[in-house]
Each structure stands twice: as structure tokens, then as C-alpha cells.
Design a protein around this nucleic acid. Structure first.
Length: 420
RNA sequence: GCGGGUGUAGCGUAGUGGUUAACGCGUCUGGUUGUGGCCCAGAAGACCGUGGGUUCAAAUCCCACCACUCGCCCCA
């Protein structure tokens, strides 16, 4: 019989890796609090339609190949969330958050699921930290989520961080731009790889982030969207840049930064860090003023970002960032079985009740003191309490420090006070 | 869906045709009666990814499959 393996694309987060998660989540939670975001938890399963709508031309690919979908009944399917933004917007609309004080600033941390081939930092189940500001068009809102993201990576010790910034326009100006871009690319078909010729048909914007050689020169002369924005988008982008400049926060305008989905409008940004395989982006975000209507709600602006925890962990490990080990008990209770075991168990729980982290040595019948001392050493125990027959007779316990100090006999009744 | 790399104990590796598959780390036990780290000794732990083929003989050569991994596609 073959032993059962972890399912493809899934990860075990072992205790030694978990310390990275704790650090990231604590830091993210603290920043969210500082910036005035409130925690929300959304269901992992949503009606498939939530994710089908709005993704436009990419819909077929996502729905058929990338989503985990379960049949709920004959004509209802549920999908494990492949992203968070749509769920945020659905919750905002459904819970009447438009009647809350505006805007509504929310964050969440949890798993998302995409059925794709594994790569470095890309798994079928991954966890995300997401921050969103709903109900606000002010570019200052864009700056808030951008800076929250940037400051998270700074606080975690990342080096070589950059903002990649672009605007993706809006329904007023984007279609005309896409036409101009397409026209330019079609003039240079002979210089394009097959894959990029296909992309012109499927999603012309995607040619901009093509990895084919020689594209730098060709795209440098292509029309750039920031030169073709409508007045509204142009003003928004200029104001955003002004605010970042005012904060002395540098950024690179990256005309090749695109979003393939129709509901994205105006601001698009990523934070890049060194390392992490083919993916430089440690987070991605932007504005999605078109999403609410796509899912059947009233027009509601939104801006936010999502960041994959696994990818952050990977980056920290590559950068040699070492989170502290989680706190473990510093006291171990050793004994010799029989009546001493009963007393040891009692003592252990008394210590714990007093708030002293305590590890109990297990010994089904007999176990050598050496073995128990070795156990203490392996778990970085500072004090071993030895409870044998002679100690029990005296209602006492030997307190043995492991840092080289002298051991002494202490009355059982006085142990808690002695250790504190 | 396409392509590259890798599969030998829990982990990291050696072994590239010939007895019971080796080493390091880790785990467990012991080194007199009840005391850790260092050291020493011992033990457990591997159908050498799976299936087929070649051969007197396969971890080793050949084929297929699978898994893992990196990249492409895609990336909400």
C-alpha cells in the first residue's frame, strides 16, 4: 500500500516555518490597526457567478482551468475563492456598507485557491493578506493602501524594494488606447513572437509585459497609456504622484505594468523585491471602480492590494531574515513513574495554572534521569524539577537549573513562588 | 496545456553492472544505584519513485509512467 502524500500544490507549514507567518501576520495586523482598517472574514466558498462576472475576456480560462468548483445542487455551483477582491465587494454590497461611514476600510488574512502548475512562491492553496478601501475615489486612498503594503515589507526587513506604478485608464479612455496600441503592434508584426501575435487577438495589453527578447526597444516606442488618459484619469494619476512625492516615496512609472481584467481602473501598482524566482512582485494592487457594477451592485469605487504570505516567507528566507523562535516552556518536570508520576502530573498542572509554561516528561513505567535530562536540553528548558520517591516523602522537589547553578530542595507548596 | 531538472532511511548525500546498499545530521537506548550539553558505544530506520525490458547479475543500462521541482502559458 502506498502512503498518502500531500495533494499537489499544497504546502505543510511546519513549526519552524510558522515563525515567519507569525511575524508577518502580527506585523500586518499591527499596520492595519495603525491605518484604521478593520478585520473582516469572508467565506471560502462563494457562488461561482461572483468570480465569473466581470473578469470579461479572461473568464473562460479562469472558470474552466483555474477554479476549484463544487456542485452544490443541479444548477448551483460553489467556487473556492481564487481571490479576495470580489468577495470584499460582494460583502460591502450585501451588508449595506454603503450606509456605514464612508469609506469602509477592511483587511483580511486567509487562504485562496487556484488550480495552476506550481512554481516558486506559487501554490494551489496560498494565503493572502488583503487590504481594501471601499467607497472612496480620492487618490489619497490609493496612497494609503500603497504605503501600508510598502511599510509592511520594510518592517519585515526587506531590502531593494521598489514601487512599480501605472494607470490602466477607465472605460472612457482605455478602449481608445487599446486600439492605438493594437494598431502600433500590427505595424510591427514581423518583429513579434508567435505568442505575442496571439496576445494581440486575445488581450493586447498583455503584449506589454511580454518576456520575449527584443521587446524593450519595440515597446519603448509604442503608445504608453499614461499619454492617453482621459482628464479624470490623468488628474487622478497626477494627484497620486504628487502625494507620493510629498511623502518622499520613490516609484517607477512602469508602462508595461498591466491588468488583464476589465474592472480595473486607474491605479495599478506592485511592490517588487529582489529574488523569489521568476516573480519579482511581492504584492499587487490597484483600483477597481468597475467591479461593483459587474457583480450587480451600485457603482462603488474601491482600491486595495493583496499579498501572498508564502511569497513573503520565501523572500524573507532568501534575505536571511530570522524571526525569533516561538516561546516554549522553560520548566520540565521529571519523575520515575508510579506514585511520583501522579505527583508530577499534579505539580505540572499547578505550575501551568500559575502561568508557568511547563513540560511534563513522559515515562510509561521506568525512564532514566539521563534520558529526561537530555529531553530537557533539547527543548531549551531552563529549570528541571525532579520528583523522586525521596522528594515525595519530604513533600519537596529538587529544582535543578540547567545554566550551571546549584540545585536545591524546595517544598512542593513553595515551588510556584520560588519559580516566579 | 508545453518544456528543463531531480527522484537512494526523517533530512543532506555517497555508491554509475558484481557478496548482507555506505556516510553525516537527526531519533532512540546505554556508558552501574536518580542528573543535560561534549565524548564513546549500540539500535531502529531504505521493497534505491513505480512498472516493464536487457543481462548469469541492475540503485547503476534502456523504455514507459508517476511524483517533486523550476520555467513557459495564465496570473483575478
Amino acid at each position: 500500500m502506498t502512503t498518502i502524500q500531500r495533494a499537489k500544490g499544497m504546502q505543510d507549514v511546519l513549526p519552524d516555518d510558522r515563525r515567519y507567518w507569525d511575524l508577518i501576520i502580527n506585523q500586518a495586523t499591527e499596520l492595519a490597526r495603525l491605518y484604521g482598517f478593520q478585520r473582516i472574514d469572508l467565506p471560502i466558498l462563494e457562488y461561482t457567478e461572483l468570480y465569473e462576472r466581470g473578469v470579461g475576456n479572461a473568464s473562460d480560462f479562469f472558470v474552466q482551468k483555474e477554479m476549484y468548483t463544487l456542485e452544490e445542487s443541479e444548477d448551483v455551483t460553489l467556487t473556492m475563492r481564487p481571490e479576495f477582491t470580489a468577495g470584499f465587494m460582494r460583502a460591502y454590497i450585501q451588508n449595506g456598507m454603503s450606509s456605514w461611514p464612508q469609506p469602509v476600510k477592511l483587511y483580511t488574512i486567509g487562504p485562496a485557491f487556484r488550480r495552476e502548475r506550481q512554481q516558486a512562491g506559487r501554490y494551489r492553496q496560498h494565503s493572502q493578506f488583503n487590504c481594501e478601501i471601499l467607497g472612496e475615489t480620492d487618490p489619497a486612498a490609493d496612497v494609503e493602501v500603497m504605503m501600508l503594503a510598502m511599510n509592511l515589507y520594510r518592517a519585515l526587513g526587506y531590502k531593494g524594494l521598489t514601487f512599480q506604478l501605472n494607470s490602466t485608464g477607465c472605460p472612457t479612455c482605455k478602449p481608445a488606447y487599446v486600439e492605438k496600441l493594437t494598431a502600433y503592434l500590427e505595424k510591427h508584426l514581423d518583429k513579434l513572437a508567435d505568442i505575442d501575435k496571439e496576445r494581440i487577438q486575445r488581450n493586447p495589453l498583455r503584449v506589454l509585459d511580454s518576456k520575449e527578447p527584443g521587446m524593450d526597444a519595440l515597446l519603448a516606442d509604442a503608445p504608453h497609456i499614461v499619454d492617453h488618459l482621459c482628464d479624470d484619469c490623468e488628474t487622478h494619476f497626477a494627484d497620486l504622484r504628487g502625494l507620493l512625492d510629498g511623502l518622499d516615496q520613490s516609484y517607477s512609472i512602469n508602462f508595461r505594468l498591466v491588468r488583464g481584467i476589465d474592472y480595473y481602473t486607474k491605479t495599478v501598482f506592485e511592490v517588487w523585491a529582489e529574488g523569489i524566482g521568476a516573480q519579482a512582485a511581492v504584492c499587487g494592487g490597484g483600483r477597481y471602480d468597475g467591479l461593483a457594477e459587474d457583480i450587480g451592485g451600485p457603482a462603488t469605487p474601491g482600491v486595495g492590494f493583496g499579498s501572498g504570505i508564502e511569497r513573503i516567507v520565501l523572500g524573507m528566507q532568501e534575505a536571511g531574515i530570522e524571526p525569533p523562535a516561538p516561546e516554549q516552556p522553560t520548566v520540565l518536570v521529571a519523575h520515575f513513574g508510579g506514585a511520583t508520576k501522579e505527583a508530577a502530573v499534579l505539580l505540572t498542572f499547578q505550575l501551568r495554572a500559575a502561568g508557568i509554561g511547563t513540560r511534563l516528561a513522559f515515562a510509561r513505567d521506568r525512564r532514566s534521569m539521563k534520558s529526561q535530562m537530555r529531553e530537557a536540553n533539547k527543548h531549551a528548558i531552563q529549570t528541571v524539577l525532579i520528583l523522586g520517591d525521596s522528594e515525595l516523602e519530604q513533600q519537596s522537589v529538587v529544582v535543578r537549573p540547567l545554566d550551571g547553578g546549584e540545585q536545591q530542595l524546595i517544598k512542593l507548596n513553595d515551588v510556584v513562588a520560588f519559580l516566579k
